[in-house]
């Protein structure tokens, strides 16, 4: 009786003994590429979506977001380096390159590679979770804040009180060049009184009519 499959599988096993390292390296390369792509994707999402919503947050949440991002950056960096190390580890470092030692070194290297890969996967996943948490915070927290009823959104545009020959005008300073000053005037809500309702909108004031410009917290 001859069971050739038995021999074929024994031969396959012998071949696999030599190929284990190649297999695990290829696997690590795939993971490295995947992790890098995923990290880039989430990072881009955050860069596109995150910044402006962070600006209006209370300090605690801003710090939370920052801490999450720093942690995520560290974790992703460690993960990426781990994946690179898994994909490009060295074989036969600091060992005699005899057949026996190398045989053991290959097994060691395969195990080390897989450990590095596992660690890289875990840190990357935790890092991605931190980024997603940061995005979630940046989405959720300002919504709560504006729902809490603070009338004054924290805009970066300064309000100025401009005294002209016609009287004072208050608004957001939009632009100014050598001839005119452009204000965005909120018509009805103007507290200075006596402003006509039609005054809402953008308003250009020639500089020769301007007597003084004073920065104010609001109009």
């Amino acid at each position: 009786m001859t069971d050739l499959a038995k021999k074929r599988f024994a031969q396959l096993g012998q071949q696999l003994q030599l190929d284990q390292l190649t297999v695990v390296r290829r696997q690590a390369e795939g993971w490295r590429n995947g992790l890098t792509g995923l990290t880039g994707l989430v990072g881009v999402v955050f860069v596109l979506k995150g910044r402006e919503s962070v600006a209006g947050m209370p300090a605690v949440w801003r710090w939370t977001t920052a801490a999450l991002l720093v942690a995520a950056f560290g974790l992703l960096l460690i993960g990426a380096l781990g994946a690179v190390r898994a994909a490009h580890g060295q074989l036969g470092q600091r060992t005699w390159l005899t057949g026996d030692r190398l045989f053991a070194a290959v097994l060691d290297e395969v195990e080390r590679t897989q450990d590095a890969l596992t660690a890289a996967r875990r840190t990357s996943v935790v890092g991605l979770c931190a980024i997603v948490a940061a995005i979630g915070v940046s989405w959720v927290v300002p919504a709560e804040e504006s729902a809490a009823g603070s009338k004054e959104p924290a805009t970066a545009v300064p309000h100025v009180l401009v005294v002209t020959v016609d009287g004072p005008r208050c608004g957001e300073l939009m632009a100014g060049d050598t001839r005119t000053l452009t204000l965005k005037v909120a018509g009805e809500s103007g507290e200075s009184g006596g402003r006509t309702p039609a005054a809402s909108g953008w308003r250009s004031i020639p500089f020769d009519q301007v007597r003084s410009i004073t920065p104010v917290r609001g109009c």
């Binding site: 021999k7 096993g13 097994l107 195990e111 596992t118």
Partner: peptide, 29 residues
């Protein structure tokens, strides 16, 4: 020579140390 296949996720609960596979039983072709 027959080696233990070390591919795949490590089957260990305790961290550290070199993992020693269970001894082989049966026969070796």
């Amino acid at each position: 020579r027959v080696a233990y296949g070390v591919l795949g996720p490590p089957k260990r609960l305790l961290r550290g140390g070199r993992r020693t596979p269970e001894p082989l039983t049966g026969s070796i072709p």
